[in-house]
């Protein structure tokens, strides 16, 4: 049962992180370069999950997932299953909840990026996409790693929303944080200890990695290095 919960948690966090990065990179780029007065509104929407109690968010997402509302209805007619209390529903909820933790570091990094470098690249004939993939992304790779780790960690640590949307179905929606709650409720303290300590160690390792990454000069990041030749 514990291993199943570990597997569900890792699967959820991985899938969520991949989806998050795909969505958050263009979103953060758009926000960072937006001149419109709508920007604070959009930033507030993205940041909402950071301040709202997860149960509030979970409540609304649950409503939207239910077949009584258009999104849930659409899902039901397309797949024949309900979104609520399913793994897919859990992924959607996790993506929404962890979005600000991924968008914000990326947006800061994009805002701080020296626009002069992009002008220089443009003058050398690099078009929009070329500049984005060959200047923007590599120059902000530290923020990328940070954002992905934050998204992953936050998804693993989420409890309220998961409980509201996913419930507690072992093998389907029961993640570690729920399993811990379950174990305590049913007074299985050995298992509760294992989960709690495990999550604690995981969180420490992740944070130590993140902070040591933060101190390392960019040039020494072990992503790419080879001697110059010609």
């Amino acid at each position: 049962m514990l291993l199943t919960a570990v597997w569900v948690t890792l699967k959820l966090a991985t899938i969520t992180t991949v989806i998050l990065m795909l969505l958050a990179i263009p979103m953060a780029w758009g926000l960072a370069n937006m001149q419109s007065r709508l920007r604070p509104l959009l930033e507030a929407l993205v940041g909402l999950p950071m301040v709202l109690p997860p149960t509030v968010l979970g409540f609304y997402i649950l409503l939207l997932c239910s077949p009584n509302y258009a999104p849930g209805q659409l899902w039901l007619s397309l797949t024949g299953t309900t979104l609520a209390f399913s793994f897919t529903g859990l992924v959607i909820a996790s993506v929404i909840c962890s979005m600000p933790f991924v968008v914000q570091p990326l947006q800061r990094a994009f805002e701080q990026l020296d626009k002069g470098l992009l002008e220089a690249a443009a003058m050398m004939g690099a078009g929009r996409m070329d500049r984005f993939f060959n200047v923007v992304l590599p120059c902000t790779r530290r923020a990328m790693i940070l954002a992905a780790c934050m998204g992953f960690a936050h998804t693993v640590g989420e409890f309220g929303v998961v409980l509201m949307i996913g419930g507690n179905i072992p093998g389907e929606t029961q993640v570690l944080s729920i399993a811990l709650f379950d174990a305590v409720e049913s007074q299985q303290f050995t298992e509760a200890h294992q989960i709690a300590a495990g999550l604690m160690v995981f969180a420490m390792i992740l944070l130590i990695t993140l902070y040591s990454l933060d101190r390392q000069p960019v040039a020494q990041l072990p992503l790419k290095s080879h001697p110059g030749r010609y």
Partner: peptide, 12 residues
Amino acid sequence: GYIFQEARLFPH
């Protein structure tokens, strides 16, 4: 080709 006041070399 544009030579700027600052070198604007790519740091990565």
